[in-house]
């Protein structure tokens, strides 16, 4: 007997219910029903909440009026921290006029030497101050992972309340999951040496969020 059949047979014996077809139909019906558990009741503006939560997780947050203002803000933010004006951008934000702001940008997959990665996001979650990033040809996951600095552009209109709302938006707009969905909440961290929190474990040491547009 194959390992698969052996394991499933013993699980089935343990479950001890019989009638696998009816149970399967009930399980598939449950998937259709899409029930969710207890969700938070967030008070106040979602965008404000997102910004406050993200800052509490050691990200920095700035607000700008529109996309046109982004490149100059990025240049200024990097200069103020003596960081290189050099970045790899995801394709979906490569169209901004980075060069005019004095930034040298390349678009595509990130490599080890890239000091700064600039990405958009699929949406953002107010409850936890979290970015939702989808992998794809125009949005490589490495841009938010390999560089020491990650800058993310967050349209205010794309801030949703919860992870459940983010999944619903994904289902409505894309149907299926991409290869990787990454929920990112601040710079990478570790507490593995004497439970002391250090920012910048393997991923970015700093995350800067630029929220674009007005509150919802």
């Amino acid at each position: 007997m194959s390992a698969r059949d052996d394991i499933l047979a013993r699980v089935r014996a343990g479950v001890g219910k019989g009638d696998a077809d009816a149970r399967r139909a009930a399980a598939l019906a449950r998937l259709q029903a899409g029930q969710s558990g207890p969700q938070p009741t967030l008070t106040g503006d979602l965008v404000e909440r997102f910004c406050a939560k993200a800052e509490s997780l050691a990200s920095t947050v700035a607000r700008v009026d529109d996309y046109a203002a982004v490149p100059a803000h990025v240049a200024e933010w990097l200069s103020a921290r003596q960081l290189p004006l050099q970045a790899v951008t995801a394709l979906d934000v490569a169209g901004l006029d980075w060069a005019e702001a004095g930034l040298s940008c390349r678009s595509g997959v990130a490599v080890d030497a890239d000091p700064v990665g600039i990405s958009g996001c699929f949406c953002a979650i107010a409850e936890t101050g979290t970015l939702m990033l989808l992998s794809g040809p125009a949005t490589p996951a490495s841009v938010s992972l390999l560089p020491e600095t990650h800058i993310a552009l967050v349209p205010a209109a794309r801030v949703v309340a919860s992870m459940e709302d983010a999944f619903a938006l994904l289902k409505a707009e894309r149907g299926a999951l991409p290869r990787a969905v990454n929920f990112v909440s601040g710079p990478s961290r570790t507490g593995d040496i004497e439970q002391t929190i250090v920012l910048g474990a393997h991923g970015p040491c700093r995350v800067h969020l630029i929220v674009i547009g007005e509150n919802s």
């Binding site: 997959v109 979290t130 040809p137 999951l177 290869r179 990787a180 990454n182 990112v184 909440s185």
Partner: peptide, 23 residues
Amino acid sequence: TGQTISNYVSLLTGTRADDESEG
């Protein structure tokens, strides 16, 4: 760890798509 969310929560499904250059 007492965190409201961990820094990275990843959902991994299938393999690299034909038009992707990583994964």
